[in-house]
């Protein structure tokens, strides 16, 4: 097999993934039960959070960086989206891109100093940011068309941001979200499969080897933070447009920890793992709630799951699925050879 065929192998994986995702997008809204109402709205949010999960997953899985502030950055993206909407009235798609840009800057600037020290410092610093953002957001609230920089009308007469014209009702907005998420994930996949992805893999392996290969490790770490923060910002924008308003209650520090935990359990090394992580993070707790299981027990399960995953199963559920599929493939392969 030549290197070209490796690439085509990878591309095949991507095409399968995208095809499955598109199939899901087409089918899900027509499913009974989840296809409409609360079920669909929950699923929409879960799909949005898979972007935040993918960011945490890329940072941890590809660079070995632990960032525990992703939900905080979703809040930054959401806040910026609402603020820009009320300030400029630009189309949602433009606001979304600007929000991604702002989140990229915020996410990079706050983590840069810690990056100079060590991975452990970055983990601590990002947790600090998650904690700080929780309270700041609770204090300022999210813009609802009010006056001033904060843009919040506290009297309760505030307005909501309309959904994008391409996704007005729940079903079309679900599809809108799914398309944006697929596009972003494909872009992320492309980055991982090209020059930056290779440089990140080298950095994860070790600074010395990476520097000896000519890689500017600082620049590529900054790039990774910027890219993943931007992706998380997109999640914030989509979330803001989903309901038109945002509630500070959704952006507690523990949510950031929970998101990181789900990513770890689901598997940080592949984008599929990230998508599973997003579903875990938002959908499973809601599902358990409807079954009458106390949502707080999810914390217990996922918390203990994290301990288990980090100590014994570094590749998570996605890794185990991959092992399973490659085991099946090698079995069928052998059978073909034998016959």
């Amino acid at each position: 097999m030549s290197p070209q065929s490796v690439a085509s192998n990878r591309t095949r994986g991507l095409i399968t993934g995208v095809a499955l995702a598109v199939l899901a997008v087409v089918l899900v809204p027509s499913l009974p039960g989840i296809g409409a109402g609360l079920g669909l709205r929950t699923l929409t949010v879960a799909v949005i959070y898979s972007l935040a999960a993918a960011s945490a997953g890329v940072l941890y899985g590809r660079l070995g960086l632990v960032s525990i502030m992703q939900v905080g950055l979703v809040a930054v993206g959401g806040w910026t989206t609402l603020r820009l909407h009320y300030a400029t009235g630009l189309p949602f798609e433009v606001v979304l891109l600007l929000a991604a840009l702002v989140t990229a800057v915020v996410g990079t600037v706050v983590s840069l100093p810690a990056l100079r020290l060590s991975g452990l410092s970055l983990a601590i610093t990002t947790l600090m940011i998650a904690g700080a953002l929780e309270v700041i957001v609770r204090y300022t609230g999210f813009p609802n068309g009010g006056p001033g920089f904060v843009g919040r009308d506290a009297t309760g007469s505030g307005s909501t941001m309309p959904r994008p014209s391409l996704g007005q009702d729940d079903q079309t907005y679900f599809r809108y979200v799914a398309v944006v998420v697929i596009v972003v994930l494909v872009l992320l996949w492309w980055l991982l499969a090209s020059r930056p992805g290779r440089a990140w893999a080298a950095i994860r392996q070790g600074d010395a080897g990476a520097m000896a290969s000519g890689i500017n490790t600082t620049a590529y770490r900054v790039l990774a933070l910027a890219v993943t923060s931007a992706v998380t910002g997109v999640a914030g924008a989509l979330l803001a447009a989903n309901s038109g308003v945002l509630d500070p209650v959704s952006f507690k520090a523990q949510q950031s920890v929970l998101l990181f935990a789900t990513v770890l359990i689901a598997g940080a090394f592949s984008l599929a793992g990230a998508v599973i992580g997003g579903l875990f993070f938002y959908w499973v707790p809601q599902l358990l709630n409807t079954w009458g299981v106390d949502g707080n027990l999810v914390f217990v399960i996922l918390g203990l799951g994290t301990v288990q995953a980090i100590t014994t199963a570094p590749h998570g559920i996605a890794g185990q699925l991959e092992n399973l599929s490659s085991a099946l493939r090698s079995r069928t392969g052998r059978r073909v050879e034998e016959s």
Binding site: P3, V6, R198, A201, A202, R204, Q205, A208
Partner: peptide, 9 residues
Amino acid sequence: QVIRALSAY
């Protein structure tokens, strides 16, 4: 320091 996650190429 061969990078485990990348192909030899």
